[in-house]
Design a protein around this nucleic acid. Structure first.
Lengths: 345, 345
DNA sequence: CTGAAAGCGCTTACAG
DNA sequence: CTGAAAGCGCTTACAG
């Protein structure tokens, strides 16, 4: 029923090997033969069986994309759809396919990755998360399997791993300096998962900026929460119930900032008049909030696009030495930041 | 280097065929042999090559997921990540893999789908969009390839296609009735793409409800826009500049409703005091807006989950007659809807 | 209960 | 420039 290379060979009066060669567009095949064979392929509606092809070629032209486990509700954060979009764009250009992980727990992820590589399902892997200790990275490294991480690998592996990232330290430093220039001095830091590098790096940037301007770090102004939205609300409660609350808040995620905004609103703290809020990511809805968020655009789409591009090089030249790419960022000033008004709340 | 079935056969002193049978857990193999072989597989770290296996089995245990073309910025709408999550959950339970489309244009989609089926990349397909005339559906039907659409197939194909959907007519009718009970009489309808069935069905439900309560349809109150967010803003301008503006708006998408809210806010029209707004989908951020949206929850996750489940049946029994599944909906009352206050704005 | 053999649909040295 | 043959790593009738 399904038509194979033999069928077109027969009809075109050539050997199967010849058909195979015109598919691969070998230069040794005469133009005449190519045309003849192509006409027959067209006529018969021939499509190569990728499974047979993958078997002999020992590669698949598909890349595996590993999402964080469902535990962290990745799909609730627009960051992931957006990187995915970047990856998709580049994969499409390269004519690579995309195979998506389905793991629901952290433990499953390792298993799924192993299956992908051992079973030869994919030619390379993109990791959409990065935490301090990740067995997946160790495994991939050990197998010398092509992969790139979006985010930052553990410090001691920075030389051995391909990755694309933002300079989150610098970015957070800049955001903090911006707030300092706006005359804020009590600036709070609201972060996410403490074992995630984004959180750590951004906290460090924040601290660097404060120290550089001679401001003493007040530990009570640093608050962390895992939950993407409710975390923001909780943070506000903790911060505002202090004797000397901050006049500005740096929030490491737009969604969390929405939680912050909501809670502030319900407490009748006016943004930006009584409180400045600056967040990160510039996700679509950061401009839809009331008021629209001042946020740091980290060019999420580009993170994904570059990752796919880098992975391709890494697949093509497996012994290439690890590279990294730092994606730019820029501040989007909208309506949640303002000069300190001097009043205490 | 890579270890195959032959290697374990040799080491276990059995034939390759026997190894294959213990992998498949054939009942004909003695427990003793099974144990022996499994021990060797474990020891050698054997994993089957899926490409070889797929080639002979002529199936792959992976399902293809087709996103709308990038033109409609699917990843900007949280609907898609959420269905994807539902699909992922079910696929993981069934031990199916996920292959994601990467097409950037409508035209590409057909090509990509053809490639998926002819090349035997996937065993079945889930279509994440549904429009009035879709060559993809025709193609799939023609090839009798297993597929299910999330949303609604064209009317004349309803008997021939597997699909999971909401009862959007009923849902919109209910939403409209809710507003009518709140004493609103001039209720506007703000829809998305006019060739999308969601839009059409919801409009029909709206009309049904109005007619049933004897209210004359005012065409100037029906407005459509393609752009997910800006569309909402434009709609407000059109609606509010009328001599006799509405006191309530039904918006077919939460994101669009955010646009609506923003524009209303900038025009100093207070929600819900001077204007009620009810939307659809109950996407995460609908509760993060100010004020939080009254919206119709359509159980997006379940749409995806059921679609994957149905696809599986459809793959297992290809000659089964087409089924459909209607997912429930329910109204989430939050802060954007209120009894008509009798004042004209 | 298990083995030998053929075959899935390709590709790629090796000849000519 | 093209063909015949072997092989990729599995599975599954067919024997025994």
């Amino acid at each position: 029923m399904t038509i194979t290379i033999k069928d077109v060979a027969r009809k075109a009066n050539v050997a199967p090997s010849t058909v195979s060669r015109v598919i691969a567009n070998h230069s040794t095949i005469s133009t005449k033969t190519k045309e003849k064979v192509r006409a027959v392929m067209e006529e018969l509606g021939y499509y190569p069986n990728v499974n047979a092809r993958n078997l002999v070629n020992n590669h698949t032209n598909v890349i595996g994309v590993i999402m964080p486990s469902a535990t962290y509700a990745p799909f609730h954060n627009p960051f992931f759809p957006e990187v995915l979009r970047g990856i998709t764009t580049q994969a499409n250009e390269q004519r690579y396919g995309l195979y998506l992980s389905t793991s629901q727990t952290d433990l499953d992820i390792l298993e799924e990755v192993k299956e992908m590589v051992y079973s030869r399902r994919v030619d390379g892997i993109i990791l959409l998360y990065s935490t301090v200790a990740d067995p997946v990275i160790d495994f991939l490294l050990d197998r010398s399997f092509p992969f790139v991480v979006v985010g930052q690998p553990p410090e001691q592996l920075k030389e051995s791993v391909f990755f694309v990232n933002n300079d989150n330290v610098k970015a957070a430093k800049m955001v903090t300096e911006y707030l300092l220039l706006l005359k804020h001095e009590r600036i709070a830091f609201v972060g996410g998962r403490q074992d995630a590098f984004v959180t750590i790096d951004r906290k460090n940037g924040y601290i660097e900026a404060l120290e550089a301007s001679g401001i003493q770090i007040d530990e009570s102004l640093l608050v962390y929460h895992d939950e993407i939205f409710e975390g923001g609300e909780k943070a506000v409660i903790e911060l505002m119930s202090q004797k000397n609350p901050p006049s500005a808040m740096i929030v490491t995620d737009d969604l969390m900032a929405l939680g912050v905004l909501r809670m502030l609103f319900s407490m009748n703290v006016s943004v930006p008049d009584d409180m400045s809020v600056v967040s990160f990511n510039n996700v679509l809805m950061s401009k839809l909030s009331t008021p629209p968020l001042t946020t740091l655009d980290i060019h999420i789409h580009e993170l994904g696009y570059k990752a796919a591009q880098m992975l391709r090089q890494c697949i093509l030249d497996p012994k290439a030495s690890p590279k990294s790419h730092i994606v730019n960022h820029h501040l989007i000033r909208r309506a949640t930041s303002k000069t300190f008004n001097g009043m205490s709340i």
